[in-house]
Structure formats: C-alpha cells, structure tokens
C-alpha cells in the first residue's frame, strides 16, 4: 500500500485531470452551440438605394415614407419647401420607428413623445442623440435615391 501522502497526490492529480477534461469538454460543446445560435450577420447595405414605385407614390401622397436598407429603417420625407430629406428612422431612445409630422415640421417618436427637428437634432423628450442623416436626391427621371453611409451634409 502506497504511503498516504502519495495517495492524496494521486487523488488530486486525478481531480485535476478530471477538471481539465470537464472544462475542455464543456468548451467543445458550448463553442459549437454558441456559434450555432449567433445569428449570421445581416448584410449591411452601403450603396445608394432607389425608392420603389409604391414607396414613391406613398411619398407623394403622405410626404413621407419609411424604407428598408438592409436591417436599417430610413424615413424619407419632403419638407415644406419641397426639399427631400432622409433620416434614420430608428429612434435613438429605445429604437421605435419615428414618423414625420408634416403640419409641425418635426420628426416625432410616439413611444415616449420624443421630438427631432428636420436635421435629426433632438428637440424634446428622452432621446439622447441625433438621428443619423442621409443625403437624398431626386434624379432627373423622377426617381428618388438615398445615399447610404454618412451623407456629406451630416459631416
């Protein structure tokens, strides 16, 4: 029979081995599972987007329209001087979709009554930051194009 000290050493060595095994095994299970669960990145759109027919007619009718750009939402609207503008439609407070109120010339978020001016700056309410601004132009053929990425005016 081996001496007691040696036995304890062997026992603790065994425990260390077991611990390494368990940790490694957990890692080899969790790594695939977590990788599996992490959603694949949505392709971020960077080029210009062109408004579709129905979006154009909605813009015509309501003076504003919300369009998708990849995962992002963008509000395109026509201010009282008939100038086209585009802002991120995701409220900087908790992410509700904002809307253009033509009568008051403000961007309004209904969730917590946040207000922005037409350049996206916060006027009132809880939103902490300005809405990102994009350049938006009407082409000669009447179509409307929003330039993604930082518009020159926002710089």
């Amino acid at each position: 029979m081996p001496p007691v000290g040696e036995k304890i050493n062997r026992r603790s060595l065994l425990d260390v081995l077991l611990a390494i095994g368990v940790v490694g095994w957990l890692a080899s299970v969790l790594f695939p599972v977590l990788r599996y669960l992490k959603p694949l990145g949505v392709q971020t759109q960077n080029g210009p987007i062109k408004l579709k027919g129905e979006e154009l007619s909605k813009l015509e009718k309501d003076h504003s329209v919300i369009v998708r750009a990849g995962a992002a939402r963008i509000v395109v609207f026509e201010d009282s001087t008939q100038q086209l503008r585009a802002l991120s439609a995701k409220c900087t407070h908790e992410g509700c979709t904002v809307q253009y109120v033509p009568g008051e010339s403000v961007i309004w978020c209904a969730c917590h009554n946040g207000r922005f001016d037409l350049d996206g700056r916060v006027l009132a309410g809880p939103p902490p930051r300005t809405l990102e601004k994009y350049s938006c132009t009407r082409e000669s053929d009447g179509s409307v194009v929003v330039q993604l990425g930082r518009g020159p005016e926002a710089a």
Binding site: P32, V33, R35, Y36, K38, L40
Partner: peptide
C-alpha cells in the same frame, strides 16, 4: 450549409 455547426446539429 450556412449556419456554423448547423450540419453537426
């Protein structure tokens, strides 16, 4: 084909 480790699952 696309999801990482999806084939394994």
């Amino acid at each position: 084909t696309k999801v990482p480790f999806g084939w394994l699952v």
